[in-house]
Amino acid sequence: MNDTTHPSAPDNSRAVADFSTQLLAATEPAPEHLRLLHQRLENSADAAGILDIAYTTIDSPVGPLLLAATEKGLLRVAFEVEDHDTVLEKLQSKVSPRILRAPRRLDIAAREIDDYFARRRTAFDLPLDYSLSRGFRGIVQRHLPEIAYGSTQSYKEVAELVGNPHAVRAVGTACATNPLPIVVPCHRVLRTDGTLGGYVGGLEAKTALLTLESVA
């Protein structure tokens, strides 16, 4: 209003602001166009070898699951209770920020998980990336797939089987921090007295998985 250098400035700047709002509205890209551009980016990033982490979300009887994979293999399976955004933020700081929603790399994992829940599959056969499993936890997590479908072991038994019989509590921690639940079956590890112990996806999910396997 007090701009003496541009006497018509108030009116003019108002009109320019209106015009630029119209300009933005008129140039809003169609969502479908952006979706196709995104898909093109997924493909070219993968081809260029710079898609460090691809992820997708799938529906399952135990709620939506986040699946994330590197070029090496499946890196992370996460339940909704873990909060998918938080999981992705951790992946960006621990592994790489080059992360895109790019479902194609997860096609096989998604299909195998579907088959598992449909009782068409009792073991997973896909490359896993164990980079998030360090040290003793990693040793325990690599042992877990040896526990057969429909059977269980106690935390104590697992500790003995990995050659560290006194590390019962550490086995519990390893199961609780399993980055690949369902696929790496930490749900098959129970307390010695047969009670559930804990589970990264919540006890309801653990019960659901054990029930699914027991009626196979």
Partner: peptide
């Protein structure tokens, strides 16, 4: 913390396309 790159694409895809067009 930097967001995962997907967030960058989601937030700025339309703006960059407007600019390119």
């Amino acid at each position: 913390m930097k967001p995962p790159f997907e967030t960058i694409v989601t937030e700025h895809a339309a703006m960059v396309l407007r600019v390119c067009r």
